[in-house]
Design a protein around this nucleic acid. Structure first.
Lengths: 220, 220
DNA sequence: TGATTTTTGTACCATATCGCAAATTAATCC
DNA sequence: GGATTAATTTGCGATATGGTACAAAAATCA
């Protein structure tokens, strides 16, 4: 029940700035990587199918430690989802910010999404929002709010992207950024779902290419 | 533990043709409606979160009866999914078959989809494939095969639809039916997901309209 | 009526699950 | 070194879960 054989010495703990010299027994785990392991499990199995024993084994923490660190199962699920959203946002925010042609921007966003969805040792992990959060959303208002936030955040980013493209003359004046954005989001959703059904990366990339062609016009 | 207070007399059982005069004690349930109740539950809660007690209560059958009729939980889940796909196909096959303008055909397909996704007494039920089957698909080859089948079946129907539209001159010669089809499927998937997050019917219809406009051109 | 057949109803088993309490260990503070 | 603090470990308990055995019930057949 140990996360790392090597205990975190002062030298091997670069993130703790100023070393606050915590009082009691030191933690045998690092919260961030433990949360990452929990996230992996929830993404793979969903909420109900993931037991505390599974989580305990994956994180290397026993149950009381899990509770003291993250609260009960539902809280851990929610914290995992927050972490997922932060990671996903981090992997895309730069692509949305930098200046580049729409086509390239879209291609890079979808490449980032595919990397998130297809990674995983025991099979593709898919998208947290699509695979499990949407499922829990009907019954849990807090999860529903987070899922909605995730959906609209992506819609807005895409809408912004198409609006800029229109201003740059990359899209015709008749283009509707909001409608295009929702199609762009829909493409994200469809590859998330298909990746769960183990559709190959190649096919998913073909879907992405076709979608981009329809949205911004076939490459000249 | 009774499905209907009125026992099925010979007169009130129109579907059993020729009345084979079954030998033993008559069933207290009708398999078709019991399967429908199980389907509702699985759609709402997914596989793991649905217990046999839940299923027993919903179907009005006790567990031994459930087993003798449908097998274990996984088999019941698979039979529910088959039933769902049959129902979904039935609600769309005519729309795909009949002769009508693309725009109208798409509108009617999406209306049918929304009816499936938004119905439900305790909240929107979403799409079986998207909400729960995609989740189980990574770990279960049989479910994965069914999910893949459902996805490609829809893709093909849409591709066929766009191919005909192109032949009829409703779409430009440059249109790519396969790419459009995958976008049309993606739109199905996105409204399935959003419906689970309780996005209103109005908003979903707006998304559908925008998607149709992009796919076949804004209405003149 | 009595034998046969099929389904139902009750009860049960072994295990899994969530959550927590109590004792133990390892660090710092004085 | 002893007190204090915080995390770990072990283990428990109440309940839930998937699955099944077995007897009672309700129909047909002879």
């Amino acid at each position: 029940m140990v996360q790392k054989s090597k205990p975190p010495s002062a030298a091997t703990e670069p993130e703790r700035r100023s070393e606050p010299k915590r009082r009691g027994r030191p933690r045998a785990y690092e919260p961030e990587i433990a949360l990452g392991k929990a996230l992996d499990l929830f993404r793979k199995q969903g909420f109900a199918a993931t037991s505390l024993d599974d989580l305990s084994e994956a994180t290397g923490m026993n149950r009381p430690s899990l509770y003291s660190a993250f609260g009960d199962k539902r809280e851990l699920y929610i914290k995992s989802y927050q972490r997922y959203r932060e990671d996903a946002r981090a992997s895309m925010v730069e692509i949305f910010r930098q200046e580049m042609p729409v086509r390239q921007r879209l291609a890079r966003i979808y490449a980032a999404a595919l990397n998130i969805y297809l990674s995983g040792e025991t099979g593709p992990r898919g998208c947290f929002t699509v695979v499990t959060a949407a499922s829990e959303a009907v019954g849990d208002p807090e999860i529903r709010a987070m899922a909605l936030e995730g959906l609209t955040e992506l819609d807005k980013a895409f809408a912004n992207c198409f609006r800029r493209a229109k201003e740059n003359g990359e899209l015709p004046a008749s283009a509707d950024p909001a409608a295009l954005a929702q199609l762009a989001s829909a493409t994200i959703h469809t590859i998330a779902i298909r990746s769960r059904a183990r559709v190959s990366r190649k096919e998913l990339e073909a879907i992405v290419k076709g979608a981009i062609d329809v949205m911004v016009g076939a490459k000249p």
